[in-house]
Nucleic acid binder design. Structure first.
Lengths: 227, 227, 227, 227
DNA sequence: GATGAATGAGATTTCATTCAT
DNA sequence: CATGAATGAAATCTCATTCAT
């Protein structure tokens, strides 16, 4: 006589998916518990039963989002033998992960808007970050040992650099498009930007900068590609 | 008597200032018209008298914020004779402007969350952008003519690069601090980051990269400086 | 416990009853959702829970009023064998229905003020009208076949005539009383007016007008009767 | 240095005109002082200066409307020698006056909604009614003396009859159109209805009803004329 | 686990009216 | 006469949350 077979785990997952969508689209304050419930075809009480409160649901959605992003990066064979290739792959994966999870960016912005209030409560999220930095450290060390990367590179600085370049382009797309009067959403624009980011980061990392500069043709003009 | 103290223009300005603060702090949806009114010592309906609606107030606050940022950059003598110096100043001004206007970042994020919905309506805002790109083009051209910068640099790409690096560090401070387990708010961290950004951008622009690489000691470790 | 006393259907009905009263008394614009809620001993948001909006409540109240009026006319055995009697009964029922449902008149005026905006949306209301015209057609046809009524009578014209005479007396009571310096609310005035309406309509319908004219003594003077 | 030549009387008149329009269109409660002021290109304070309050403005608009209607009926040569003709003209003028002043009907309904609250305060309005009844009495008396009308006719009853038939058709146009599934706004429908009203009233008044019945062809079908 | 009904606090917005000049 | 600015009360509507079953 159960409403449907719907096992709890599946329901939880569906709720989280739509909560991510809602919180990402319109932020914590703008999100409506009713709307999430309605879209899940679940009664509002269920949300409260599973997640205690709107805040609880938000934190759960945040965690779920992090897990998704990390899962996407985990099966990344960045520990490949070639540090240059590994770095290229790391950058590409970062860009693609953000690009394909638009809610992630909004949720992260939301968290920063709240000055990290929720993220700080969740050990789970903190734990999800460490493998990322570890991976980057590993790559840098190996690259250094191989004489390809400079010595003394700070993984934090490298991560900040690549992360800024990947994230900002996507997160501030709309205001940037107006500022630069260009289209940042086209496939070719994004491809060129990713190439540019890769060049910039590798140029920064390599011992002898001139080595990478010519590896690939540089992204000269986004505008040109858009036409 | 008594009531008379304040002229309308001043009241308008006070409302805008606090609206920027409120919208920036908690977003459009989270912002409360009541709160803004109360903090201005103005009755709620005055906000509606001046700005028609919450949305109208938001757009006005956005415009005001842009004006503020641009005003800060306008009295910037970037058209100095030395392109390298001009570029350094442009980067520094961008970073400092964002750093000293924390509402600006949140308002811009807010706009991007709404997919540029409001900004697109305001010709005023669009107009405020153009001088920025013009200035950058001017610097790049002069640098190219002087043989210091590469030829063929796209101002859009250069702007995207420096903007990403300045903005993201500040906008995502809280999640980055947790990811990297470091403090990004200290004066020295920020100084080092600004130096790093400058290096990265100049390295990208100069004809012969090796020229700039040694200009100043590189930011080796944020963590180290924080300790 | 305690709270539990009332089932939803009963609450809905109570709200509708008081909404009819409020909308009828003071019109759509003048009606206050708060007042309706308060009189129902129901919290304001329940009205929105049940009826979505003030407009939704208005339409529901309109429908409820129509149902009431029609229900009152349905158990009317106007299909009696005698067309004259049937017509008299129809007129009397129309007058009495309007007289005993003062909200009905105001609600109908309200609808006409809004140029039929709401009524047009409600199929339910449209459907409630047809039996009325059908009944009238039936009476006229039978009367015609019996040689009592003229042939070629348009039910619409007959309905318009009797409806005007019944409705206007009640709907414009206050301005008419001042115009004519008389009292239209007394039982005897109303009785005489109903008699007058009956005479007028039957006189119009019968084949040979002289037949009805003497059936009952005519209403000579409202003023006289009021004294 | 005066804003414009605009003499006070003209301004007052303009305000009243638009106030009638607004109060008529949407009722006392729905009318907005701001809207009236705006449409007059007059500051709100002027309304208060001239009319003291919204209520004062409403009463003034009512009075103005009555004056307009009466003015239209005054230059009516109903005192013509032929009572039948006079009565026909009176009916026609009543119908046309209501038809060409749609605000009048709504304002009258508004007054009745308020149970004559405002009208009772205005001696001016009361005075405007008497000539109408006097005129009707005069016509009836002369018609009686001439042997054309019955004796003992109560002017109040006759007025109620013709007024109901003229007013209701116009005032309840929208609900009637839906009830009867017909169009009451066409010129031909209205012409036929006026003819019908005239027939009904004259038939009621004449000593020997058969005398009028054949005067003019009767309105058989509104629907037929609409097609 | 699950639901429809209910709630209380509060959000945005409106409006007649008045004040100071 | 005339105005822009201001006000306070109140109107419609929303929302996170809980209760009773």
């Amino acid at each position: 006589m159960a409403r449907r077979s719907s096992d709890p785990a599946r329901v939880r997952e569906k709720i989280l998916k739509l909560a991510m969508e809602e919180f990402g689209r319109i932020g914590f304050e703008g999100a409506r518990v009713d709307r999430i419930a309605e879209r899940c075809n679940v009664s509002k009480n269920m949300l409260y039963y599973y997640f205690k409160s709107k805040e609880g649901l938000f934190v759960a959605a945040l965690e779920r989002m992090y897990e998704g992003i990390r899962a996407q990066q985990r099966d990344l064979s960045v520990r490949a033998s070639d540090p240059l290739l590994a770095m290229e792959q790391l950058i590409e994966h970062t860009f693609v992960a953000l690009e394909s999870n638009p809610h992630a960016i909004r949720l992260l912005n939301e968290e920063n808007k709240h000055r990290g209030k929720y993220i700080r409560k969740s050990k789970r999220i903190r734990d999800l970050y460490s493998p990322l930095v570890e991976t980057l450290s590993f790559i840098l060390e190996r690259g250094c040992r191989d004489g390809i990367f400079r010595s003394g590179l700070d993984p934090a600085v490298v991560y900040l650099t690549l992360s800024s370049l990947c994230y900002h382009y996507l997160s501030n797309q709309y205001t940037l498009e107006i500022a630069l009067n260009t289209d940042l959403s086209s496939v070719s624009s994004r491809k060129q930007w990713l190439q540019h980011v890769t060049n910039i980061v590798l140029q920064y990392c390599v011992a002898d900068p001139s080595a990478t500069l010519d590896r690939k043709p540089n992204a000269r003009s986004l505008a040109a590609s858009a036409s």
